Simulated scan of single mutants.
Amino acid sequence: MRPARALIDLEALRHNYRMARRLGGGRALAVVKADAYGHGAARCALALQDEADGFAVACIEEAFALREAGIRAPILLLEGFFDADELPLIVQHDLWTVVHAPWQVDALERTPLRKPVEVWLKLDSGMHRVGLGAADYRDAWQRLRALPHVGGIVKMSHFARADEPECVRTDEQLATFHDATAGLPGESSLCNSPALLGWPRARAEWARPGLMLYGVSPFPQANAIAAELRPVMTLESKLIAVRDLPAGEPVGYGARFVTERPTRIGVVAMGYADGYPQFAVNGTPVAIDGRPGRLVGRVSMDMLTVDLTGHAQAGVGSRVELWGNQVPAAQVVAHSQTSAYRLLCAVKRVPLQYTG
Rank of each mutant, 00 (worst) to 15 (best):
T181E: 02
A182Y: 03
L184A: 04
G186I: 05
G186Q: 02
S188R: 12
S188V: 08
L190C: 14
C191H: 14
C191K: 12
S193Q: 10
P194F: 14
P194W: 09
P194L: 12
L196G: 13
L197G: 09
L197E: 05
G198A: 11
G198F: 12
W199C: 12
W199E: 13
W199K: 14
P200M: 09
P200T: 09
P200G: 11
R201S: 15
R203S: 13
R203G: 12
R208H: 15
R208Q: 15
P209T: 08
P209N: 15
P209D: 15
P209C: 14
P209A: 13
G210Y: 03
G210W: 08
G210N: 06
G210K: 10
L211W: 06
L211H: 05
M212D: 11
M212G: 12
L213K: 10
L213N: 10
Y214T: 07
Y214H: 14
G215H: 05
G215V: 09
V216N: 06
V216A: 15
S217I: 02
P218E: 06
P220R: 15
P220T: 11
Q221W: 09
A222C: 02
N223F: 09
N223V: 08
A224D: 13
I225D: 12
I225R: 15
A226E: 11
A226D: 10
A226L: 10
A227W: 04
E228C: 14
L229D: 11
L229A: 14
L229N: 13
R230M: 14
E236W: 06
E236M: 12
S237H: 08
S237G: 07
L239Q: 11
I240V: 15
I240C: 13
A241I: 09
A241Y: 12
V242A: 01
R243D: 13
D244Y: 01
D244A: 09
G248I: 00
E249P: 00
E249S: 06
P250I: 01
Y253A: 14
Y253F: 13
Y253E: 13
G254K: 00
A255M: 00
A255Y: 00
F257Q: 01
F257C: 02
V258A: 02
T259R: 00
E260D: 11
E260I: 00
E260F: 01
E260Y: 01
R261H: 10
R261A: 10
P262G: 02
T263M: 04
T263C: 05
T263R: 04
R264V: 03
R264D: 00
I265S: 02
I265A: 01
I265R: 02
I265C: 01
I265K: 03
I265W: 02
G266Y: 08
A269E: 13
A269I: 05
M270G: 05
M270A: 15
G271W: 03
Y272A: 04
Y272H: 15
D274H: 14
D274E: 09
D274Q: 07
P277C: 09
P277D: 08
F279L: 14
F279P: 04
A280K: 03
V281N: 06
N282W: 03
G283T: 05
T284G: 03
T284F: 03
T284S: 07
T284Y: 02
P285T: 02
P285L: 01
V286A: 06
V286L: 05
I288M: 07
I288C: 08
I288N: 07
D289Q: 08
D289C: 00
G290L: 07
G290R: 06
G290N: 02
R291M: 08
R291S: 10
G293D: 08
G293K: 00
G293W: 05
